[in-house]
Simulated assay, not measured.
Amino acid sequence: MHIPFRKMHGLGNDFVVIDARVRALAMTARRAAALADRKTGIGCDQLIVLEPSDSADVRMRIFNPDGGEVESCGNASRAVGLLLADERGGETRIETLGGTIVAKAGTNGISVAMGRPRFGWDEIPLAYAMDTLTMPVGWEDLVEPVAVNVGNPHVVFFVPDTHAVDLARLGPLIETDPLFPRRINVNVATLTGPDAIALRVWERGAGLTRACGTGACATAIAAMRRRLTGRKVTVTLPGGPLAIEWDDTDEIVMTGPAATSFEGTFAEDDYPA
């Protein structure tokens, strides 16, 4: 049996999207990791499986290249919003492990209402109680981060120069620190203007990436909480900019591009579950 897929990306953060709403496809960590492998599989930053939902228009499952299933992915949410825009009349309610979000197609790209941020130490979660606005912890020169859960967990470090941080080395150390029982996404950010932020991200289970939508949301919220910016900011990642707003209803709204790269099929038996 050959399974159709669509290769999509948001600012270079790329996905293999499989629509399993009509014909179910068993997805395991083994199969997800094999499909995500860039040398022996299709290759992607995340594998996305669309399934029927009892509470929304579609259920989106998200698998990292290591095969682990995660709660949320902002760039993938925009890709799914684009994919289903015509089918759903421009607005799609998407069920994720991190909560239900809403994607809307517009003239400026795809906007996604990502839900409300969470700040409690047990909502991140952390291993023990502490202030999440200025955490009394550090790893070498990276100190006193902000912790926020935007559907998945993040720590944000504000630094003078994001490129001066050896994120490839420090990212995995922080990600797997016992302080974070579900591991953590690691963001290093620099203010570049009154409402402008430059950002690099080490993604939990994926590593360095050109763009991370939830990282952009978490970083924007961290800057707003520390009163470093207003409630609307532009976050520029290596792959390009995203517009982030924390609106009057406490919702995070992320707006940016998404695109289809190509379509194809793979033989189900080539990637056993």
Results as ranks from 00 to 15, higher is better:
H2K: 11
P4W: 00
K7P: 04
H9R: 06
L11S: 09
G12H: 10
R21H: 10
L25W: 09
L25M: 09
L25P: 05
M27A: 04
M27W: 05
A29L: 03
A29R: 13
R30L: 03
R30W: 00
D45H: 04
Q46E: 01
L47R: 05
V49T: 12
V49S: 07
L50K: 05
E51F: 07
P52N: 11
A56E: 07
M60R: 11
E69K: 05
S77K: 06
G89Y: 13
R93P: 10
R93N: 14
G99D: 09
V102Q: 04
A105F: 06
G109D: 13
G109K: 13
I110N: 14
V112K: 12
G115R: 12
G120F: 08
E123V: 10
E123P: 11
P125G: 11
L126A: 02
Y128A: 14
G138V: 03
V146M: 04
V148L: 12
N149D: 15
V150N: 10
V159N: 04
A164H: 08
D166K: 07
D166G: 01
P172S: 08
D177Y: 04
P181G: 11
R183E: 03
A189N: 06
T192I: 00
A198F: 00
A198Y: 00
G205F: 01
T209D: 11
G215E: 06
A218N: 10
T229P: 00
R231M: 13
K232H: 15
V235N: 03
V235C: 03
L242A: 09
E245W: 06
D248R: 12
M254W: 09
T255D: 09
P257C: 11
P257H: 11
A259P: 08
T265D: 15
A267E: 14
D269F: 01
